[in-house]
Write a protein that binds this DNA or RNA. Structure first.
Length: 766
DNA sequence: TGTGGCTGCCC
DNA sequence: ATTCTGC
DNA sequence: GCAGAATGGGCAGCCACA
């Protein structure tokens, strides 16, 4: 298909060849083309005649021994093309393979000399744990409910340090106290520490967000919602706003102190409340909780409702602290030397983390821990068909060179990275469950997978199996992968036969097998699991396919495979070591992802005008946290809002950008700004002055944004998928930013735009 | 009964 | 999702 | 390198309200 080839070449053009002369049609300065053009001069700016600076001129060869790369100068480029002028940057390879970080080679050290693999600080910390008086540290009486204030104080302490060992210690001591004084409250305390109310596959949700919290806060304090929003701008945290409102308020009588298990129970009640007037009921519970909150309790009640404690200790730290608390209070172990203790703690961490990833349910783990301790835990909580396991995830990689560096001297294999929804499928006794990446139960969303696709694909001898793969929207007639947005449009519950006729069909691309005929394969190698996958299942045209894979460590071959993956409408590659096990809690370096837009100098970037910003929250308090961007419509001479952006900034850049943009603050949006009223209204508007280069994975059709409005599809604009800040284009004027026309062209040239790019296919030449 | 805001969950 | 940062 | 915390678009489903 000519269009696709063109697109690919377009994306991966490496050497020479000016991009500017390519277009006969409306094409002018196309930043995409410019971005993927190495060296050659950019197109001429229409407005002011200035010659566009070649992008990535900051590119500098990195010294082969240098690991530290300055963001602005050190980024390396990946050069790829279809025609085989693909060259790997050999100058980097030799040095960098040698300068691997020591950690990646570090052995686990189970049988090594004492204390090997356990840091000195851990040993010192272990010593302190011996002298900790769990019972004596309690602020409440034996057997009585844990006061919520004890949690709040713990969270305060966690906020007070950024040291991770310190955080673990603080949480461990709190949990030890709970275990020894009021063990039945351990479960609610742990849940309140991770802001959950149940395992995610249980599917119960609070249904509460910032808006509702603010309404409740407003009703309980008498302040208007707008006043609270103003407070937010200053404080950058809704929990802090709640606290200062509370403490400013004079209470007539002392409310009963909050108790952890009660707060937890009320959260559950909120989650179970639904139907008419449910919001009113939920709000009244929140108001009640806030009224009973003292000091920082209000902060954490609110943050828990928001789902983020923001104390620098989240799930992993909680699990680690839980394991240690149980270890100290429940397990018998050798406490003679501090080194042995540290090793034991390390071992306990590993066990509980492993079990938690195989059985991610505090409901199951905590009773088992309390009953029989850490070392017995794997006996009681193990991988079970019907309960989702944490999926293996992959890390971003900036190019083939990095893959080769990370996987030096290990065998690896590649698979297409499909753009769909991760799906872990459990099959046993004729029953099927489908779990999402985050362990949500997606079974009702894909009835045809359960009723047709899987039954047809399972081989006769398969009694039970757990598969890992990706559900992708698929056109069975054209045998073509459809865009992610088509998958999103599917119904999620109460799917009728009528719905099924209308919405996109799907194909399951299987790439792993975690369990087969009563045997767990989590500790088997990838090759063994692939074998089991093929033993358990057979492909079904357009319904069930094995992920396309290739095993090679040849640079050229890898690049060709990557290019093929884009032609096949996938996102790129996942690279996996061949002998790695499926243990998400262990080494996560085993899977890498390789996408065109991670590669410097490859993929789409746009030059966009900053027209507004919002005040930052949390660690972005005091600076702008995110920004509103626009393209330039040079026909109508207006700026059309295309997207927000909030990632890619270093801390210093945020500070600088805050300073610079504040100079351009204006009271109201310009008449020549096009945005959806009521939507996308920033805290602050700016004069169109500043231009940023923004990297993007994809362009999407948007009902919310105005850029290139109606040009690709009636009633829709074009927006961006995964936008991130690259750098400020001080050399660019706003009228030389990406235009609506260019945006449309970029949209149409996407492989996933499906054929529309054809009209320009022949325009492209060197 | 229709619409729009809010929420959670996909990426 | 992507990205940055302190440990 | 891990773990945590900032932040993106966009969809369906639920609920309030006109």
């Amino acid at each position: 298909m000519p269009m696709q080839q063109r697109s690919i070449e377009f994306f991966f053009r490496g050497g020479g060849g000016g991009g500017g002369g390519a277009a006969k049609t409306k094409m002018k300065a196309n930043p995409v083309r410019a971005a993927s053009t190495d060296g050659g001069e950019g197109p001429v700016d229409k407005e002011n005649g200035a010659v566009e600076q070649p992008k990535f001129k900051r590119l500098k060869k990195t010294s082969s021994s240098s690991q530290e790369e300055d963001k602005g100068e050190g980024r390396r480029r990946e050069t790829l093309s279809l025609s085989g002028d693909a060259r790997v940057k050999d100058e980097h390879k030799g040095g960098l393979t040698l300068s691997q970080s020591p950690q990646s080679k570090k052995p686990k050290g189970k049988k090594a000399a004492p204390a090997f693999g356990v840091g000195e600080k851990s040993i010192a910390a272990a010593a302190l744990n011996k002298s900790f008086d769990a019972k004596g540290s309690a602020t409440w009486k034996e057997g009585e409910p844990v006061p919520y204030s004890a949690l709040a104080e713990t969270f305060d302490k966690l906020s007070g340090t950024s040291k991770r060992l310190e955080k673990t210690k603080i949480l461990t001591e709190f949990f030890r106290t709970v275990v020894s004084v009021t063990p039945e409250d351990l479960l609610p305390c742990v849940y309140l520490s991770v802001c959950q109310i149940a395992p995610s596959h249980d599917g119960i949700e609070l249904g509460i967000g910032d808006s509702t919290i603010m309404k409740a806060l407003s009703e309980s304090t008498g302040k208007t919602v707008n006043a609270l929003k103003d407070e937010m701008k200053k404080k950058g945290d809704l929990g802090d706003v709640a606290m200062s409102c509370r403490s400013a308020q004079k209470t007539m009588f002392q409310p009963k102190p909050l108790v952890a298990r009660h707060v937890f129970q009320e959260f559950k009640t909120i989650a179970l409340t639904e139907g008419g007037q449910s919001m009113e009921k939920k709000k009244s519970i929140i108001k009640k909780l806030l009224t009973s909150s003292k000091r920082t309790e209000a902060t954490y009640v609110v943050r828990a409702l928001q789902g983020k404690l923001r104390v620098g200790a989240s799930e992993q730290t909680v699990v680690a602290a839980l394991s240690r608390a149980i270890l100290w209070e429940k397990d018998e172990f050798d406490k003679k030397s501090d080194e042995t203790i540290a090793k034991c703690e390390d071992e306990a961490d590993k066990i509980v983390k492993q079990v938690f990833s195989e059985c991610p349910s505090f409901d199951l783990i905590i009773p088992a821990l309390l009953a029989s301790g850490v070392f017995e835990l794997p006996k009681h909580c193990k991988f079970t068909v019907g309960v989702p396991i944490r999926p293996m995830l992959a890390k971003p990689t900036t190019g083939v060179h990095e893959v080769l560096e990370k996987f030096t001297d290990v065998e690896f294999t590649c698979e297409y990275k499909y753009d769909g929804e991760r799906a872990q499928i459990h099959y046993q006794d004729g029953k099927i469950k489908i779990f999402s990446r985050n362990a949500e139960d997606n079974t009702p969303k894909y009835p045809e997978v359960s009723s047709e696709i899987l039954p047809k694909s399972l081989r006769e001898n398969t009694r039970n199996v757990v598969l890992d793969g990706e559900i992708v929207a698929f056109d069975r007639e054209l045998k073509q992968i459809l865009p992610f947005q088509r998958l999103q449009k599917r119904k999620r519950k109460d799917v009728t036969d009528e719905d099924m006729k209308k919405q996109a069909q799907v194909c399951y691309f299987a790439f792993d097998c975690l369990y087969y005929n009563d045997k767990s394969l989590l500790q088997s190698t990838l090759l063994e699991r692939r074998e089991a996958l093929r033993e358990a299942c057979q492909e079904q045209e357009g319904m069930f396919l094995f992920a396309t894979d290739k095993t090679s460590n040849d640079v050229e071959e890898l690049q060709v495979f990557l290019e093929e993956s884009i032609v096949a409408k996938t996102e790129g590659l996942i690279v996996k070591t061949v002998d790695s096990t499926y243990e998400p809690s262990q080494r996560s370096l085993n899977w890498l992802k390789l996408k065109k837009d991670y590669m410097d100098g490859v993929g789409d970037s746009l030059d966009l005008v900053v027209v507004g910003a919002w005040h930052g929250k949390g660690k972005r308090k005091g600076v702008y946290g995110n920004f509103l961007l626009a393209v330039y419509n040079d026909d109508d001479e207006v700026y059309e809002v295309i997207s927000k952006i909030g990632t890619g900034f270093e801390e210093a850049e945020l500070a600088e950008v805050h300073k610079d943009l504040s100079q351009h603050k204006i009271d109201a949006p310009r008449s020549y700004y096009k945005f959806k009223d009521n939507k996308n209204v920033p805290d602050v508007w700016f004069d169109a002055k500043v231009v940023w280069e923004v990297k993007v994975a994809n362009l999407t059709l948007s009902p919310h944004y105005e850029s290139a409005f109606g040009m690709a599809e009636a009633g829709k604009g074009i927006s961006m998928r995964f936008p991130r800040y690259e750098r400020t284009r001080k050399d660019r004027t706003p009228t030389s930013a990406t235009t609506s026309t260019q945006l449309l062209e970029m949209y149409e040239n996407q492989p996933e735009a499906g054929g529309r790019g054809n009209k320009n296919a022949n325009d492209y030449s060197d």
